[in-house]
Write a protein that binds this DNA or RNA. Structure first.
Length: 333
DNA sequence: CTTCCACCGGAACCGTGGGAAA
DNA sequence: TTTCCCACGGTTCCGGTGGAAG
């Protein structure tokens, strides 16, 4: 049944993007000066999860790079790089400017001079830019004359107030491209393109796609995870066609898939905190700290735990409710 | 209504370790 | 080699604040 598993994986970059014609045009227009050797505005790309932000950014930049000799690009997810230096290192490697660099022990300035030394215009995609903790880093990047930033983040309305002042002002000054959730019909269409690319023709009934789209509620990442799990399940059972009744069975597996992508980035102590909250579903701050201290051999300080909990919240793995003495940490699902 | 204090989060500080300069 | 520098991952300190208890 599965003819090309890659097409169902989360990182797959399709050859054509559907239902994003407007944003594609917008982004392309903002980046256009680069193809004529001029510099372009920095860009902030926002939208809810599963709206295709990352895919869109990579798609547009890849096309630009293919059409223009003097443009090079790099992509990084700020979530998975804990420090400024590791983020710069990764980006330089991606851009093809750091093959000879080692990952540690080099001052920031050295990396930045690499950027300036390049004859090409550079476009860097920084995914989840709101977790960049060092404001000085973005400022420094802004000052590089031949560097255009394409910053990607979820569209929390509280975003600009929650991040550092200096970061916020950088984000505000960038050209803003906003993505909406996919509609039901758009998502059905996207899923059927993926099914065509990855599954035997005719193996997915139309009404199953519609159900998946319904469950995913505009979130393409979840929709594709559902499709992938449905196909795997059917494959295991030796079925030739995905059945409509399948969805309830595989929904939680698909949601686990999406969650596991995030959990994979956690350190062991972050993981302990997350596991406790997931086990208990809902814990007061006091209880959580007590449980954590009982479970872990060398507990981190309270302040450090709060930082970990912050990052869990940014990953959308947990939710913090209430304030002050009635703070609770909640896991839903 | 007032008081208390658990919790949050900013800021300053610290020990370690690798690299570069002397 | 020794010394200096700097990033990193933490901790310590502390002021603000709003729920909860009195």
């Amino acid at each position: 049944m599965i003819t090309d598993a890659r097409a169902l994986r989360p990182e797959y970059l399709p050859r054509e993007l559907h239902h994003r014609e407007g944003p594609i045009q917008h982004l392309t227009a903002v980046l256009k000066p680069l193809s004529q050797g001029y510099s372009a505005e920095n860009i902030l790309l926002t939208g809810p999860s599963g709206a295709g932000k990352t895919t869109l950014a990579r798609y547009v930049v890849e096309r630009l790079e293919a059409q223009t000799l003097a443009v090079r690009s790099g992509y990084v997810n700020a979530m998975s790089e804990s420090t400024a230096v590791s983020l710069l290192y990764r980006l330089l490697r991606e851009t093809g400017l750091g093959a000879d660099l080692r990952p540690e022990g080099i001052p920031q300035g050295e990396y930045l001079s690499r950027v300036r030394a390049s004859d090409d215009e550079l476009v860097w995609i920084i995914d989840e830019v709101d977790v960049v903790t060092e404001p000085a880093l973005l400022e420094a990047l802004y000052e590089q004359p031949n560097l255009t930033l394409l910053m990607v983040t979820v569209d929390h309305n509280d975003l600009l107030s929650s991040v550092d002042q200096r970061v916020a002002s950088r984000l505000r000054s960038a050209e803003h491209v906003r993505l909406e959730k996919y509609t039901h019909d758009e998502l059905v269409d996207i899923l059927s393109h993926r099914a065509d690319a990855g599954l035997k023709p005719g193996s997915v009934p139309e009404d199953l796609l519609s159900q998946i789209a319904e469950t995913a509620a505009g979130d393409a990442r979840l929709g594709i995870a559902l499709l992938r799990q449905a196909a795997r399940h059917a494959d295991r059972e030796g079925g030739k066609r995905l059945s409509t009744g399948l969805l309830r069975e595989i929904e939680s597996e698909a949601r686990d898939d999406v969650e596991n992508l995030q959990v994979a980035h956690l350190s062991t102590h972050q993981r302990h905190l997350f596991d406790l909250i997931r086990e208990h579903r809902n814990l007061s701050a006091g209880d959580l700290h007590e449980l954590y201290e009982g479970r872990v051999r060398a507990p981190k300080s309270k302040r450090t735990r709060r930082r970990y909990l912050d990052s869990l919240e940014r990953y959308d793995l947990i939710e913090k409710r209430g304030a002050k003495r009635s703070t609770r940490y909640v896991y839903e699902r």
